[in-house]
Design a binder for these strands. Structure first.
Lengths: 146, 146
DNA sequence: AAGAGTTACCCCACAATTCCCCACTTATTA
DNA sequence: TAATAAGTGGGGAATTGTGGGGTAACTCTT
């Protein structure tokens, strides 16, 4: 499981260090490949197999249905397979960097089955946002029996 | 599979570089021909065989049904076969360039079986649009566990 | 039918990016 | 406080992308 936050710097070449404990998770699962994908305001990193399952399902859906196209465009199209270099970094493709507004300080956020990559300011803004709607969340959680 | 985004410049002659990883997909399938077609706000590029499958199906449909005619006009009629030059570029025919509003920065977007070619501003507008109608997509997301 | 202008296609040269190293600094652990 | 691990920075080769010249084909005009 991916848990905890890390702050790392995105270097001038667009590389981002992956925290050792995240890399350990990958190694323990026997496949160090990572897939970077886009989400709304951040990037999401999946272990390769985890992502494969999703991508395979989607690939079998319609090639013309507008809803499927929208979904594919939004969540699938950006997926980029990558490997850590010897120093444990991945190169974030320029368009993904741009989408997620990454520069300078980056937050890596464990989300159990995957982890997210946030620009620092956006990450704090996101938490603000969530906390503004906290009431709704709590009742939602309560419904789930948590 | 075509995945990931690339940003390339459309040069003064209307040529567009195809990312190396997309060209690899074509080469691996043993047929480097590409078919460019029109879609709603962007262009779509198919490997030749993939396109053939679509075009063959449509060719067997009615020659008079207005819906089929409309579909044919919209998605089929603009199809243009083309090959990459030695530098890995294709020439985008001027009418298609115009239709998709391409100039300057162009996004190439992997859509699994094919890839789309977007004007940068339109691409971001499209994402906005999708995210505004997120409700439509929730069924997929639930299905896929995203 | 000939000539001017445009467009497409081939080529080469340069620029930018990516990839693969190695070295240094900062944390962590013993 | 040494020893090991983690994270950062940067050099240099290889790959990828960009710009542009020159010739051939094609269109349009006269």
């Amino acid at each position: 499981m991916f848990t905890g936050w890390s702050i790392h710097a995105l270097d001038a070449k667009g590389r981002l260090a992956i925290p050792a404990r995240f890399r350990d998770v990958l190694r323990d699962e026997g496949d160090e490949r990572l897939v970077l994908t886009t989400s709304e305001r951040c990037l999401v990193a999946y272990p390769y197999n985890e992502w494969r399952a999703v991508a395979d399902k989607v690939s079998r859906l319609s090639r013309v249905d507008p809803k499927v196209l929208a979904f594919r465009r939004y969540f699938i199209s950006g997926a980029t397979e990558s490997l850590c270099d010897k120093q444990g970094r991945v190169l974030i493709p320029q368009p993904l960097r741009e989408l997620a507004g990454l520069d300078g300080q980056v937050y890596l956020v464990g989300m159990q089955h995957n982890f997210e990559i946030w620009d620092k300011d956006r990450w704090y803004a996101e938490r603000e946002q969530i906390s503004a709607n906290f009431g709704d969340l709590s009742s939602f959680m309560a419904d789930l029996g948590i």
